[in-house]
Write a protein that binds this DNA or RNA. Sequence first.
DNA 1: CTCTAAAAGCAAATTTTTTGCTTTAGTGGA
DNA 2: TCCACTAAAGCAAAAAATTTGCTTTTAGAG
Lengths: 196, 196
Amino acid sequence: MAGWEMDQKQAVMEKPQAAPRPGGRAARIQAAVFKAVDELKQAGEELTVPAIAARAGVTPSTIYRRWGTLADLLSDVAVRHLRPDGEPTDSGDWRADLRLWLEQYAEEMASEPGRAMMRDVLSADRAANACTCSAYTGQQLDVIRQRALARGDTPPETAVLMDRVIAPVIYRILFTHEGADGDYVAGLVEGVLGEG
Amino acid sequence: MAGWEMDQKQAVMEKPQAAPRPGGRAARIQAAVFKAVDELKQAGEELTVPAIAARAGVTPSTIYRRWGTLADLLSDVAVRHLRPDGEPTDSGDWRADLRLWLEQYAEEMASEPGRAMMRDVLSADRAANACTCSAYTGQQLDVIRQRALARGDTPPETAVLMDRVIAPVIYRILFTHEGADGDYVAGLVEGVLGEG
DNA sequence: CTCTAAAAGCAAATTTTTTGCTTTAGTGGA
DNA sequence: TCCACTAAAGCAAAAAATTTGCTTTTAGAG
């Protein structure tokens, strides 16, 4: 069965928008713009380049020159939020950890903000951001998997988890009006854990 | 295991952009605009509302008033093309039919036009179009399934096919740089056909 | 400390989008 | 068939957005 190559070095660690001189002005402006986007979203304001620029204390042309389009900017903002903030919890029982992590993942992605972020990531011309997202996911699953392996256990391949759980969950969220509720996810998880 | 509700009457048959008075002016204009989009895409021209309007011999405000945004228009155009043009071939061997149909489906969706159409469908605010897409897919699978059932055979549930084949294929196409090649699809198909 | 290259600011030009009002086309009733 | 009536299209002006040429600032290298 075909699988996934995670290609961590390449896809995972690259910054959404390569920051040439980190720590300098470029980074400050990027941060200001990203923050502006978040704040405007939060406030429910219209998300336009001029509005974002004003909020960030920056000239619109700066944004246009750096990101090209609003879609690309929003895509970069989305991946930032999609980046996992820590490792999955380690209870000693990898099956429990896996179930828990997947439940939380599904819930987050199915939420309105989650859906919006996915749409933002996919709407950009640049495919790299979408790849980064799935790499993040694979990375997290790998952490749980490695723990299991370290204990001599045989968890399912990451590729299998992507195909059998992640993909169906995301597909449902993106393409149907039924969410990916707890029962659905649990069913998928049992499907893979049942075999090996 | 949780499944899919196809909900055919609701999701499948609804027009992408409800045409109030079919056959009238509204329909003609819609057709002209859709054709204009296709032609401009074909010609590799910039896809802007004014350009589309000009090509369609229509005023831009007509498009803005009817579709709101370019994304919504492109979304409608995309679903139109995603609508299946016929039933899956019937060779008498439903497994072969299924394999063939899935291969073709994967290939079409993985192609650059296919990817673009999916992005267009998903980029619109309106979630209905994405639902329509997956409903189309479920419908086609159901056709193959019904034939098998009619012969007293026991094909996998449509829901299972969606979860185990369609979802992984689409996820891969949308979120990774590896395509969904023939081997990958074949592997997925064997996965479901192997069990029942 | 100066020099350089990259990126930001600014402002004008261009293009796209919105909007108020007028005109036209299709529908239903006399 | 003719006459209203309604929904949608056309038109044009206004508003908003994006692009672009040029100037200024900034961080980093020598």
